[in-house]
Nucleic acid binder design. Structure first.
Length: 711
DNA sequence: AGATTTACTATTTTT
DNA sequence: TAGTAAATCT
């Protein structure tokens, strides 16, 4: 599988596309807009993806070489889907379009031109976890103990450093916005940032932020940068509202030769300020690209007027916003339902019941989604769905490649590919018996002087530790076996997973069998790769490659979606449930502490609401917690809008055990003397279990795809 | 001293 | 679940 040139082998005959029939006047203006810079301000559900896709198809139809078109999207999946659609219509002539996230496109080009920036080609990529580990190591070296000195924890330090880089400002300025209380430590954090940079360079690794800044530097360099900019005649950027200052530099540099750049975004859907995204990129686009044409797509094709009313009114509470109202085209539906539940588990039961009811009425599970602010909010619902055997796909929380045992195995492959990779050494050494943090650090520090793995396995390039000799021998044995196996990723994975690592898994985890299965999954997935470096690059940047494979294998799409709101960006479903809309959960308390936090949370709510096509269910539990019950208020976002926008549903309780004495607005629940809290019994239908039925209608492809086929 | 075990706590969002 | 602190083992 290629990491970057997205292609599909479905081919098919070249069809003539009737643009005028598929697009409205504004969209057509964008598609046919000709060369030059162009900014598209597009509201939710206004068909911006469709417009971009048609633009790409139009260019290729008019003789533009697909390989000179670059799509920069927020996720790799978004690129892949757009490319697939174009290829589906235009067939083989569309092959070779470049697309992906800024990070993955950057990684690919940086690997091609690594020497230009004094990196080695085999550099490793650190994910957020790895970065935090390295920062932790640096802090330890600098003798900074977070606990003793009320210094921020390594994760927070990492956030601050990352935020400063992505917004291109000093640590001090970043602190003022993100963590004013840590201002006194700005000097020390600066020192950590410096050391961290040195250590990354020594280990020949790049973190996510390096992928962006180095990409920008590469593009800004006179020779190579110019060559790349010459190659890409057309650049299209999606979700521009969520780009940061470095990404804006990348866009400017990569389009500086041909100046054919389209940026599409919606300031109302900017939800990544916490990691440095800046709406100013959209605002200043006209200045940065003089003569830029500006289009507005404000017609909403997605949602019923009742849903749009709620979205529009909620957003009107944001001051710092372009005022724009979405105009709906769909006919009326029902009002959004607002459901007050007694507890999180009642909420889960209600949602599960409703979902099964919707399904009985003919809505496929795949057309239903449950959205929430943070991953933990889905727990109760997951229990409920498992109990009823309802198949669901979970998006959010931990990814497959972030699971501990996957990262363990991968750390061995990383060492093999790039023996300087200190973080990978630390991880794999830490797994060996008799080797703890101290010994691992001591050994790993020697690795940075290595060039080839054979220096360790053949020439004893690392001085063996005095302690934990057995663990070290095990480690060497694994590495030696790997060297004898060659460089095929799947072989290497199986080598490690059948080594003493298996004993470690058994010792450490009761569910080691499942974990072993995961490792076999990983090996199966790796069979798509012959090249170790391509494999390693992909698994750190393509979060959903494995999910895709599983989907293809199963051949059934009949699965409900559970997702964080952040991950639901750009998607849509017939029926959407937004759960846990309680005041202490959403808006999120920590987010509120940051500058502009409330408005960002409100935009997040806006994104959630505008995912729904026909039905929207908003629910919140009145109580939360297990030991001490906390009493909840509904979310600000519910309280602040006109109640007439909702249909309220009260879930009545039978046999509610506790007699509540007082009704505090927050704080602990209180009872009279003999009142003990009982889990309320609920008068919604008894537990219905999911039954798989023959699919009545063939699964609907995405609406966009259907449109294209019709033409 | 360093490794390991055990008990406990808190949990935002992510390329 | 992951990270941490204190207790215990080698």
């Amino acid at each position: 599988m290629s990491t970057f040139v997205l292609s599909s082998d479905q081919g098919g005959p070249v069809k003539k596309i009737d643009y005028a029939a598929a697009l409205n006047q504004e969209q057509l203006a964008v598609v046919l807009g000709g060369d030059g810079a162009c900014l598209v301000l597009a509201g939710a559900g206004s068909g911006k993806t469709r417009t971009l896709t048609y633009r790409v198809a139009y260019l290729i139809e008019h003789g533009v070489d697909p390989a000179s078109i670059l799509l920069l999207t927020f996720t790799n999946k978004a690129s892949r889907e757009m490319v697939e659609r174009v290829e589906h219509v235009l067939g083989p002539s569309a092959k070779g379009i470049w697309g992906g996230t800024f990070h993955s496109v950057g990684a690919r080009l940086l690997r091609m031109f690594a020497e230009e920036l004094e990196y080695k080609k085999n550099f490793s990529i650190l994910d957020a976890d790895d970065s935090r580990d390295l920062i932790k190591a640096v802090m330890k070296d600098l003798k900074i103990d977070p606990k003793a000195r009320r210094f921020p924890a390594s994760g927070v330090v990492g956030d601050i450093i990352s935020f400063a880089r992505n917004t291109q400002q000093s640590i001090e300025d970043a602190l003022e916005i993100k963590h004013p209380n840590f201002m006194p430590f700005s000097g020390e954090i600066e020192e950590i940032a410096r050391q961290y940079t040195v250590r990354k360079k020594q280990a020949n690794v790049m973190d996510f932020d390096d992928l962006l800044t180095n990409f920008a530097m590469l593009l800004e360099s006179p020779h190579v940068g110019m060559r790349i900019a010459e190659r890409f005649r057309y650049v299209l950027v999606d979700e521009y509202q969520d780009t940061n200052a470095v990404q804006a530099r990348i866009v400017a540099a990569i389009s500086r030769v041909h100046k054919n750049i389209i940026a599409v975004g919606d300031d109302a859907q900017s939800i990544y300020a916490f990691r440095g995204a800046d709406v100013k990129n959209i605002l200043s686009f006209p200045e940065q690209h003089p003569n830029a044409r500006i289009f507005k797509l404000l017609t909403n094709y997605r949602s019923t007027p009742e849903i749009l009313d709620l979205a529009n009114e909620s957003l009107s509470h944001n001051v710092d916003q372009f005022q724009k109202e979405l105009v709906g085209l769909r006919e009326k539906g029902g009002k959004p339902k607002l459901i007050a539940c007694q507890s999180a588990s009642q909420e889960a039961r209600y949602v599960a019941e409703q979902i099964l009811a919707l399904r009985n009425e003919g809505t496929a599970l795949a057309n239903i989604a449950v959205l929430f602010r943070s991953s933990a909010h889905s727990q109760q619902l997951e229990f409920e769905l498992m109990k009823r055997d309802v198949p669901y796909e979970y998006r959010g929380g931990q990814k497959f490649f972030e699971r501990a045992h996957i990262k363990d195995i991968v750390s061995f492959l990383r060492i093999y590919e790039n023996p300087k990779d200190e973080i990978a050494w630390l991880r794999s050494l830490g797994l060996q018996t008799g080797i703890g943090a101290a010994t691992a650090t001591e050994v790993a520090r020697q690795a940075v002087s290595l060039e080839r793995i054979e220096e360790v396995t053949d020439e004893n390039g690392i001085v063996p530790p005095t302690r934990g000799r057995g663990g070290w021998d095990d480690m060497m044995k694994i590495l030696k076996t790997m060297v004898s196996k060659g460089r095929v990723p799947a072989d290497l994975i199986r080598t490690v997973s059948s080594s003493t690592y298996q004993d470690y898994l058994e010792r450490e985890y009761p569910n080691f069998r499942e974990r072993l299965e995961d490792l076999e999954q990983l090996a199966l997935f790796a069979e798509n790769y012959e090249d170790l470096s391509a494999f390693l690059a992909d698994i750190s940047l393509y979060d959903d490659v494995l999910a895709q494979r599983q989907e293809a294998g199963r051949g059934d799409n009949e699965r409900l979606i559970l997702s964080t709101i952040h991950q639901a960006k750009g998607l849509e479903w017939d029926s959407v449930f937004i759960i846990h809309l309680a005041d202490n959960a959403f808006p999120n308390k920590r987010a509120l502490a940051e500058e502009g936090g409330l408005e960002e949370e409100r935009r997040l709510f806006y994104v959630a609401v505008t995912r729904a096509r026909r039905q929207l269910f908003l629910s919140y539990p009145l109580t939360m917690g297990h030991e001490t019950l906390m009493f909840n208020q509904p979310s600000t976002f519910i309280d602040e809008v006109n109640p007439r926008l909702f249909d309220r549903v009260e879930l009545r309780e039978a046999g509610f055990g506790a007699k509540r004495v007082s009704k505090p607005s927050s704080g602990e629940w209180s009872w009279d003397d003999d009142g003990e809290y009982e889990e309320p019994t609920i008068q919604i239908a008894p537990t219905t279990v999911f039954k798989k039925t023959e699919t009545k209608k063939p699964l609907k492809p995405g609406s966009f795809l259907r449109d294209i086929e019709d033409l």
